[in-house]
Computed example of a mutant assay.
Amino acid sequence: MDDARWLTQEQQSAWRQLVEVLVKVPAALETQLQRDAGLTHMGYLVMMTLSEHPERRLPMSHLAKRACASLSRLSHVVARLEEKGWIRRERDTGDGRVQIAVLTDDGFDKVVATAPGHAETVQQLVFDRLTDAQVRQLTKLAEALLKNP
């Protein structure tokens, strides 16, 4: 392709390092959560998201958006969490077509127990390696990369 926009050497280097971060950090978080809490990273993200909302409940479609997951993937994750008694699904009383995910008391306790180890792992993997200025830069970079085109 003559009109291909090839990466410059600098872009190629940055891209490969970003890919390495995108692979290594989630894998390390998954390992820590599985080992210490018997949770997947997505399962923890779903439960943590619910724990931060009033009454610890959200419509599944809103939860999928906040967890960066498809409804299908979220449904599978929630089903596994339901089996453990950490989440339950209810029908919206105003619109029976809408499913609401609700974090149970046991689920909330699981998030509270899991959070310190997860936060420590994030500190070790990311923030212990960055200066305050780099953290601010990271925030700006993430915002730019996540901005809708």
Rank of each mutant, 00 (worst) to 15 (best):
E82K: 14
V112R: 12
V21A: 14
W15D: 06
K24C: 07
E10H: 04
L138G: 08
A119W: 03
L63A: 09
A64T: 11
L63Q: 09
L71Q: 15
S70A: 06
P26F: 06
A79E: 14
L81R: 10
P149T: 01
H76C: 08
M48L: 10
L63F: 07
E90C: 08
R35G: 00
Q99F: 06
T114N: 08
G94R: 15
T121V: 03
L45H: 06
Q137H: 09
A133P: 00
I100Y: 03
A37Q: 11
A67K: 05
A37V: 09
W86P: 07
L22F: 08
A67C: 15
D95S: 11
S61H: 12
A133T: 09
T40S: 15
L138W: 12
P26L: 10
H62Y: 01
K140N: 08
V111G: 05
I87S: 05
F127D: 00
M47A: 08
L146E: 12
E52I: 00
E82S: 13
R136E: 13
R129H: 11
M60V: 12
V122H: 02
A28S: 15
Y44W: 08
R35P: 00
Q134D: 12
W6S: 02
R129P: 00
R56K: 13
T40D: 12
A28E: 14
Y44D: 08
Q137W: 13
V19L: 11
E20C: 05
V23A: 10
L7A: 09
T93Y: 02
L39F: 04
R129C: 10
L103F: 08
L45D: 13
V46Y: 06
V25R: 10
T93M: 07
D92R: 04
H41I: 11
D2R: 00
K24D: 14
Q123R: 15
Q11N: 06
E83L: 09
L45K: 10
A4C: 01
L125I: 01
R5C: 00
L74F: 08
D128A: 15
L18Y: 02
K84D: 07
S61F: 13
V21R: 09
L130H: 01
Q12E: 08
L141G: 10
V112F: 03
M60D: 06
G43K: 05
Q11A: 13
A37K: 05
R89V: 12
A37S: 15
A133M: 11
V21Q: 09
V21Y: 07
L45W: 03
A101Y: 00
L33Y: 10
Q34A: 12
L22I: 04
A67M: 11
H76S: 12
E30C: 06
G107D: 07
K84Q: 14
A37E: 13
